[in-house]
Design a binder for these strands. Structure first.
Lengths: 351, 351
DNA sequence: TTGTATGCGTTATCAA
DNA sequence: TTGATAACGCATACAA
């Protein structure tokens, strides 16, 4: 029924008794007589013809592939969710995606970008990039890119989340529950990789929201309540180890906090373990809010957290990339909202 | 310095003053004079030439791409870990991978396979496949495939994990801690998708290990202690919801178990929530063991679990695929060990 | 309305 | 040791 290998457009043409140009016309739309059309259509069915994407890519000088550079899909589910959002949008537009995880290693990222260039990806999406000089490689190859979550450059479109407002919701929620001694466990703006000059840094926004709320609602001010570090570790066996350590330290304070705002679910997971070890009860003894909404539903108790629109961010990123590919000019910056999801880890302040 | 677009092998040839054939020879190895070689090498450097993978793929009738069909990367971290293992092995062999998630929907899987065929992937890896008739599509296109974790066919290479021995370790561990009333919360062999005739089914193996140990160690036999269902739900907001429900039911028994073997970390996460709600203490009041080692380290308390060699499984799967592609005959079946990791959720039986 | 012919960038055969 | 050339499968300009 079928020759060796997959049928080509030539096979279809021969079977239908027309030229490849005619087959192409019924495929892509164009002037075709009714007779020719039906002949081609039956031939199409008979052969089960499917175009060869490499040949098409070569001819069209377009691979219909976009590269996704991720920090590390296995370490934080955040990335899997973003990737999924990109993937779905891409599929819907007949695009495929190729992933690469750089593990926050700029050299690895460079390798990945070179791979992407070899693959002739039509664009690349970063979530997130480590280094502006790597991005320059893409500029040199004329490959457009967009940045998600964090940005290293001001030229490329940037999809961000409103971390400030999201973090603020978390704090307001705690204040409304009567908490006045609230700790912050989160990313250290200082140790983050060099950012662009856009003026938004994930860490700063979250920390600023905390500090502003401490002021505004006249909460307890104590520098020991603010614990900065990394969101998760690539090297520890447990990525949330630092959340654990910070929380242990907080609980050993003469006056421990009644609530902790851990600005990443992974950090919050570590915090939950520390609290468990100290035999404290959540939320009766202490409340905790996370950020991201990744692990949150899986933890015990289910975590109140600031939910990031991961899939939407991915989809928006893909749309920007497609605009760039097709010569349209996307917004240089888009801000998506984050929203507090209240679950079981927050309650009225004790005492 | 560089013309529009990426440099081609022609650009290199012209710059070096040789033919493309000579450039190809220095690239791929062959008889080249010292003079020509140095000329080409400098031209290579100067242009920053990188071969066009689509042109190569077209010419070689090989895409250097393998398709990865996953159940759903965002629902169970298991898949992200397997995918990562595949990815790393693939990169090391100059292969790239393309992912597709079917969400246990056989129609979606079919769509994905058709995509893979269009992409002319050289092979596909399933983790896991839903339907043997979908696999037949690949047979028809002459695309080899391998199955990971579960198999629907006996023809394709199959990489499996020794679930029986893994589960047995968990049970023995509990027995050694003095538990005699042990519950099983796990997958129902009956509701699983139709399996191949290989005689191993993940669910059966785990359940059999449980049952054998109950017999062998003379543990309490009570049908109410065995709770079967799905490992995780795609539709609930919390994939571990059924673990929660089963555990609640178990705790309401007149004689609740002193230990629960939940054969998936997601199920175990639900169990932990139920136990937390009931204000029981782990492991003082009740012990719990999971399976997979995905969420385990993140839970409170850190979960004792049977660790699956996810990355190894992915790497082995890729190796099989490569063997198939290059005409070697890989083992038809490979069994990888699973190993108990003891953490904080298991302790001596109370009382 | 249809067919012919060419090129996309590689690889590899063959003749020189 | 080297270069001209053909072919992979598709899309399309141009001719008919």
């Amino acid at each position: 029924m079928m020759a060796a290998g997959n049928p080509t457009i030539h096979d279809v043409a021969k079977l239908a008794g027309v030229s490849t140009a005619t087959v192409n016309r019924v495929l892509k739309g164009g002037y075709v007589s009714a007779d020719a059309r039906t002949a081609v259509e039956t031939a199409l069915k008979e052969t089960g013809y499917r175009p060869n994407s490499m040949a098409r890519g070569l001819r069209m000088r377009r691979s219909y592939t976009i590269g996704q550079m991720l920090t590390e899909i296995t370490v934080n589910p955040f990335f899997a969710n973003v990737a999924q959002g990109v993937e779905n949008a891409a599929r819907a537009n007949n695009y495929r995606t190729v992933l690469f995880n750089h593990s926050n290693d700029s050299k690895r990222e460079r390798l990945g970008i070179e791979r992407f260039i070899d693959d002739h990806v039509d664009a690349v999406l970063f979530c997130t990039s480590t280094d502006a000089t790597n991005l320059a490689l893409l500029d040199r190859s004329g490959i457009p890119y967009v940045e998600l979550e964090r940005s290293r450059t001001t030229a490329a479109p940037f999809i961000r989340v409103d971390n400030y407002t999201g973090a603020r919701q978390a704090m307001v929620h705690l204040v409304e529950l009567g908490h006045r001694r609230v700790a912050f466990v989160g990313g250290d703006p200082a140790i983050q990789l060099p950012n662009s000059r856009r003026g938004y840094a994930v860490e700063e926004e979250r920390l600023n929201a905390y500090r502003d709320c401490v002021q505004e609602f006249d909460l307890l001010t104590d520098p020991r309540l603010v614990r900065l570090g990394k969101y998760y570790s690539m090297s520890d066996t447990f990525p949330g180890a630092s959340g654990y350590r910070h929380t242990r330290a907080l609980l050993e304070l003469d006056q421990p906090p009644t609530a902790i705002f851990a600005t990443c679910d992974i950090l919050a997971a570590g915090a939950l373990q520390a609290i468990y070890d100290c035999r404290l009860r959540i939320p009766e003894d202490i409340s905790i809010v996370g950020f991201d909404d990744t692990l949150a539903v899986c933890l015990a108790p289910a975590l109140t957290t600031v939910s990031q629109p991961m899939a939407r961010m991915g989809a928006a990123g893909f749309q920007c990339a497609l605009d760039l590919i097709e010569g349209r000019a996307p917004l240089n910056e888009q801000t998506l909202p984050a929203e507090l999801v209240v679950r079981a880890s927050t309650g009225r302040a004790p005492g």
